[in-house]
Design a protein around this nucleic acid. Structure first.
Length: 302
DNA sequence: CAAGTGCCTTTATC
DNA sequence: AGATAAAGGCACT
């Protein structure tokens, strides 16, 4: 961690496409709030604000290098988009969502966030994470506003499942409590995942309570630099059935079409398809397709 | 406005 | 391996 103070306003001019609103609204991260023209957030222990003014990215109370990393500005977006645009479906999504980038979240917060996210709507997820932070995190004031740090593993490890459940987590509370204990005790090291091969890191994550393939893929993609990870949720399943059914046997498509949840084998088949079809930046394809489908949900197909 | 349905799934059990 | 059920409670219709 850097110890300098970055209270002054700083400006960054991304040389490549970037859209802050899209990136923060597409449901990757859950603790950002837009107040007026500024987005307020707290990552690690420091609140900060960011806004996009034309092409310029302005921010306060944070370093330029953190902003660059966190918002995925080090990704070569044109190259990535070129590689994932394998068909007209991705092409439409890419054209509609210019500047959407994959964030690089804090791995611990990301892990808990997606354990909480299982079988929940985005507004509900936001509520749970706000409640958790308010109850167990540290208060931090910035711009006369109050923020809460995301609770450390040690803090959640010593909280009772009932206390955690009171934040609205329901049955997920015990998963968060148990996972926090494993991380706090050192039995599980999130840092070590960084150096591991994709499949190995994934396997490690799957051993944690409350972490299935979907959660593991989200953590890998959104916080562990694994842009090949291809999370498959209900939306992605629908998209694959709608646009990519040809890549599977008819019987398989029929089977998954009428079920609400996927078996492990079925999930792996869909996720593996994503990784092999879209390549090493499959996670980006997932984000574009996912968000495009959601913003178009309810609208009649063209 | 009430009641029903769905929710960026995982786990347990057979 | 695949099918089935259960699991908070909130959000939206």
């Amino acid at each position: 961690m850097k110890s300098e103070v970055f209270m002054e306003k700083m400006v960054l001019q991304p040389s490549q496409p970037f859209n802050l609103d899209l990136t923060l609204r597409c449901g990757q991260a859950f603790r950002w709030e837009k107040i007026g023209v500024w987005w307020y957030g707290i990552v690690a222990d420091k609140p900060f604000k960011v806004r996009q003014n034309g092409n310029a990215l302005e921010f306060e109370n944070i370093s330029a290098s953190f902003v660059e990393k966190y918002f995925g500005l080090r990704d070569d977006l044109p190259l990535i988009l070129k590689q994932i645009t394998k068909d007209k479906h991705v092409e439409a999504a890419v054209n509609a969502l210019k500047g959407l980038r994959v964030l690089r979240q804090n791995p611990w917060e990301c892990l808990v966030s997606y354990i909480c996210a299982t079988y929940k709507s985005i507004p509900a997820i936001k509520r749970m994470l706000f409640n958790l932070s308010k109850k167990f995190g540290e208060k931090a004031v910035f711009d006369y506003r109050v923020f809460y740090t995301f609770p450390e593993p040690q803090r959640l490890a010593k909280a009772s499942p009932a206390e955690i459940a009171s934040c609205g987590l329901g049955y997920r509370a015990k998963y968060v409590a148990e996972t926090a204990k494993k991380v706090a005790s050192g039995e599980f090291s999130i840092e070590e995942l960084q150096a591991m091969p994709f499949e190995e890191a994934r396997k490690k994550l799957l051993a944690l309570p409350g972490v299935g393939p979907k959660v593991a893929d989200c953590v890998l993609l959104f916080s562990l630099e694994r842009l090949e990870a291809f999370p498959v949720d209900v939306w992605m399943k629908r998209i694959i059935i709608k646009h990519y059914a040809i890549h599977f046997e008819g019987e398989f498509v029929r089977r998954i079409s009428h079920k609400k949840s996927l078996t492990t084998t079925e999930y792996e088949k869909l996720s593996l398809f994503g990784r092999s079809y879209f390549g090493k930046f499959a996670g980006y394809a997932q984000e574009y397709l996912f968000h495009f489908e959601r913003v178009n949900a309810g609208k009649a197909p063209a």
